[in-house]
Write a protein that binds this DNA or RNA. Structure first.
Lengths: 91, 91
DNA sequence: ATTGGCGATGTCGATCTTGATCATCAGCGA
DNA sequence: TCGCTGATGATCAAGATCGACATCGCCAAT
């Protein structure tokens, strides 16, 4: 599923053109990104929680060189599935 | 940031009542949930990718008993931050 | 204001992450 | 609708992090 599919789903329940639906989806993602970049946690009950987290681990590995690669970065976004998402069984 | 904030952001760029904005946000999350539950991967460039993944690890831990707890479930949702989300520096 | 999902705790193993590169597909212009 | 741009995926390796259970409190949602 890609952005277009989401827009189509939105159109089914919200009377608007595909372009508008795309705009809405894009906007939402933009807002979420912005909020996350600002360090804000996004909590939506029944769906999940997006949380910016500081990362402590500081070492990776380079395939070619095989040398230990320092990981200077220290942040990442974690998405924690909500109750509804945990209902996933062995499909 | 919670659902209401997202709805407000939507209202700013999309002329509609708060109730409608809430409905849109709720709908989107519903669609995403449904897609994920159906095992579909949601890929949005510049934002991130939601991917249902089978979980192989089969052991947890009970605080009280401290005994190894079998994890019967075998799925979880992983959110992979896109390029824009990786721009997060040590805020 | 009420309901109830969600957070944190604690342990121990599996999972995930970073880094670079080529191929493929998402996003979007014409 | 067709095609281009370029972001994403997989991989090797080592080390750090997540996960789940069970419970109380807090805050999101109604």
């Amino acid at each position: 599923m890609i952005k277009i599919d989401i827009a189509n789903s939105l159109m089914k329940v919200h009377p608007c053109s595909r372009a508008t639906a795309l705009q809405v989806v894009d906007l939402l993602t933009e807002r979420l990104k912005d909020a996350l970049l600002n360090g804000h946690r996004i909590e939506i009950r029944g769906f999940g929680v997006f949380e910016p987290r500081p990362r402590k681990r500081g070492m990776g590995r380079n395939i070619k060189t095989g040398a230990s690669v320092q990981i200077p970065k220290g942040k990442s976004i974690r998405f924690k599935p909500g109750k509804d998402l945990r209902e996933i069984e062995v499909a």
